[in-house]
Simulated assay, not measured.
Amino acid sequence: MSIYKDKTTLLTGSTRGVGRQIADHILASGGNVIGFARGTSTFEHEQYRQFNVDLSDATAVTAIFNEVRRHTNQIDIVINNAGVLTSQYAMIMPPAAAQSMVNVNLLAPFLISREAAKFMRKSKWGRIINIGSMAASLEPIGDSVYAATKAGLSTLANVMAKEFGSFGVTCNTLGISAIDSDMLAQLPRDKIEEIIKHLPVARFAEIDDILNIIDFFASERSSYVTAQTVFLGGVN
Rank of each mutant, 00 (worst) to 15 (best):
D6T: 10
N80W: 02
P94N: 13
L232W: 07
I207Y: 11
L107R: 05
V102R: 01
A227K: 04
N130H: 15
T8D: 11
G30R: 01
R69K: 15
G17A: 15
G126H: 03
F51C: 10
T12L: 10
D190W: 02
L232N: 01
R20M: 04
A37Y: 05
G234M: 03
Y4E: 06
N103E: 14
I210C: 02
H198Y: 05
I195M: 07
R20E: 14
G132Q: 05
W125F: 14
S137M: 10
N236Q: 10
A97L: 11
A37V: 10
S166T: 14
G83R: 08
I112G: 05
R20A: 12
E115T: 01
E115Y: 02
K197W: 05
G13F: 12
P140C: 05
G83W: 01
L111A: 04
L184V: 11
M101N: 15
R114I: 05
V201N: 12
M134K: 00
I77Y: 10
S100D: 15
L10R: 04
G31C: 12
Q47K: 13
V61R: 04
A148G: 04
Y4R: 08
L10V: 13
A148F: 05
A185C: 05
N172I: 02
V61C: 08
S133P: 00
T173G: 07
G39V: 06
A161W: 03
G165P: 04
A147M: 09
A98W: 03
L138G: 00
I34R: 05
I207S: 11
V225M: 11
L199Q: 12
N236G: 13
A37F: 04
S137H: 03
